[in-house]
Amino acid sequence: MLVHSRRAKWAVWAVFLVLFLPLFALPLLVVLGASFATHWSGVLPSGLTTGHYRAATRGEALQALTTSLVTAVTASLLALATGTWAALAGAALKKRHRRLLDALFVLPVAVPSVVVGLSVLVAFSKPPMLLNGTRWIVILAHTVLVTAFAHQSVSAAITRLDPAYEQAAASLGARPAYVLWRVRLPLLLPSLTAAAGLCFALSMGELSATMMLYPPDWTPLPVLIYAATDRGALFAGSAIAVVLMAATLLVLFAVSRVRTRASYR
């Protein structure tokens, strides 16, 4: 539309690829390549091996994978429940109150995750809520961090929801709770699963707050990757990183399958 001649088009695309590929595709390819190598000082990695993966799928790394999965699933479900509740309750409020609620729930996005980690550490290191040293402090911090995203995407979906559906339901004699359960939530399902996927991915990759909080027996994957690179084991770290990416993508794919089945229009 913008560029009409064939040559100009190809030139634009060449520039695009020159910028796009090295910047965005290359990093991922490099990590993938390194995960199969033991040396990389030339153009291509050398000393090909699958040994890193053997290490990355057992023992400590396997433990970290389950830790990450459990943390991410728990945190996203809790965040989804809280965020959806807040969004639904907020939708019934007057505009001024709703804005206040939105601002409140979006605040964790603006606050640095490190600070969220620090604040959780400060607050829950002493009785009556002594969570420091348990897995719950990690899950709690993740939940706080991703609730904002869940709330944002669900409330955006609620404003897009045509009120004609709930009004039709109400005119047919359905009480508000029945309308919520049988009409609004099913119609929101695609957005809910999308929000869940987003929360899951964010939690899987969360490093900042986790670094402040994780107890020795609850080490998620990003921390393990950092530990590996910090002691110089870059190639082993890459393999764990690939496992992290693969696990995230797999879950996101499964979630998107649920979503396509849940979207009716």
Binding site: D162, P176, L189
Partner: peptide, 18 residues
């Protein structure tokens, strides 16, 4: 509305898509 017992039909149908 849900206690009025009236039937209602609107222009854009509002059939529950699910």
């Amino acid at each position: 509305p849900h206690r009025r017992g009236i039937g209602m039909v609107v222009q854009q149908y509002a059939l529950f898509p699910h």
